[in-house]
C-alpha cells in the first residue's frame, strides 16, 4: 500500500515535470524538478483526484501550509498520512 502510494505520487510528479518516473527521487524539491507554482497546484489537484482525499494547501504560504511540500519524500509522507487519516 505504502509503495503503491509512493509510485503513484512519483508518477504524478514525473508527469508534471515531463520526466520519467525513474528520474524523480525522494530528496528532490519541486523546484529541482522545474515545477512552478501553477505546476504545484496541478500536482495537488492530481493527488486529490488520485487518492480521493482533500489536501490542506494554501498557495499564499506554501511553507506554512499544513501540507509539507519541501521535497518529493515530504509529499509522499504527507499524502500517506492524509490517506490513512481520511480513508482509514
Amino acid at each position: 500500500m505504502a509503495q503503491d502510494i509512493e509510485a503513484r505520487i512519483i508518477g504524478i510528479i514525473a508527469e508534471q515535470a515531463v520526466l520519467e518516473p525513474g528520474d524523480v527521487s525522494g530528496d528532490q524539491t519541486l523546484e529541482d524538478l522545474g515545477i512552478d507554482s501553477l505546476g504545484l497546484v496541478e500536482v495537488i489537484f492530481a493527488i486529490e483526484e488520485a487518492f480521493d482525499i482533500s489536501v490542506p494547501f494554501n498557495a499564499n504560504d506554501p511553507t506554512e501550509s499544513e501540507f509539507d511540500i519541501s521535497s518529493v519524500r515530504a509529499i509522499i509522507d504527507a499524502v500517506t498520512g492524509l490517506v490513512a487519516e481520511q480513508k482509514g
Binding site: F57, N58, A59, N60
Partner: peptide, 20 residues
C-alpha cells in the same frame, strides 16, 4: 478554490499574516 489563493477566514492586505 482550485487556484488555492483564497482565504478561508479574512482579507488582510499588506499584513504579514495575510493568507489570500
Amino acid at each position: 478554490e482550485g487556484l488555492r489563493v483564497m482565504s478561508k477566514d479574512a482579507c488582510r492586505p499588506f499584513s504579514a499574516n495575510r493568507n489570500g
